[in-house]
Simulated assay, not measured.
Amino acid sequence: MAMFDDIRASLAPPHPAGRPFIMGGLIAALLGVAIGHWLIWLGLMFTLFCLYFFRDPERVPPARPGAIVAPADGRIVSMGLSAPPPELGLGAEPRWRVSIFLSVLNVHVNRMPLDGVVTRIAYRHGAFVSASLDKASTSNERNALAIRVASGQEIAVVQIAGLIARRILCGVREGDPVRTGERFGIIRFGSRTDLYLPDGLRPLVAEGQTMIGGETVIAEMLP
């Protein structure tokens, strides 16, 4: 059953952000009919890569009140106490940060970690060092979101560009109500997503663990 689930996820329809790239690959393949067979194969290989990279499988959030789920697929590369991005205005008090690295093989659609309301979105230009490095959280180009949950506490999710990622897309606005596991954006071609937990909350996961966006429970809100 797990094997069929993996196959189904790999064949999931692409995210709308991938359509221009997929169309570009198909057009290149068609042009290859007139230019040369090498372009046909190049166009088809690029199209297949984009279909895989931009796949957008359905996810089922856990039916656990207060569960904070992973905002992205990938591997946890670092965990520790760190202040949220200053542009969000959440203060300088360190809180637990869970950093998830997404390789080009991971699903790159970002998902909301918990029900709430988006209170602030702030984009910051920066560098494009490897997203697997710890300094990527502070040095790289990023898009940060603050989300107020039912308890009145705020969590932060940060989309971070990587070495070859050059485009961060966010589909929500300040004031939007959001639901756990709901899609809110995508980062193209290798990236990182940081999750800052509310004050006093500790993660239930470990460094090196693999996350499934919208499903893996990272922490639970205190009752």
Rank of each mutant, 00 (worst) to 15 (best):
E154K: 05
I147C: 04
V107Q: 13
H108L: 06
H125V: 15
Q159S: 05
V109P: 05
V104S: 12
I147R: 07
P86D: 15
G89C: 01
Q159G: 06
S103V: 10
T119F: 01
V158K: 10
E182V: 04
V157R: 06
I121C: 01
R124P: 01
V149I: 14
G162F: 05
P113A: 15
G89F: 01
P85E: 02
I155N: 12
N143D: 11
L163S: 03
D194H: 11
V104L: 15
Q153R: 15
P177F: 00
V109F: 02
R124N: 13
I160D: 08
D194N: 12
A156K: 06
V118E: 02
G126H: 11
V117M: 06
I168S: 10
C170Y: 07
F101M: 05
D194G: 10
A127F: 05
D134R: 08
S130H: 11
G185P: 02
V172G: 02
V172N: 07
C170E: 08
I187D: 10
N143I: 09
E174T: 13
G89E: 02
T138A: 05
A136E: 01
S132L: 02
L102M: 15
L114C: 11
G171Q: 15
G162K: 03
S139V: 09
L145G: 09
G181I: 08
P86F: 14
S151T: 15
G171S: 15
L145I: 13
V172I: 15
R183A: 11
V149N: 10
V172K: 10
G185K: 07
T180P: 00
K135Q: 10
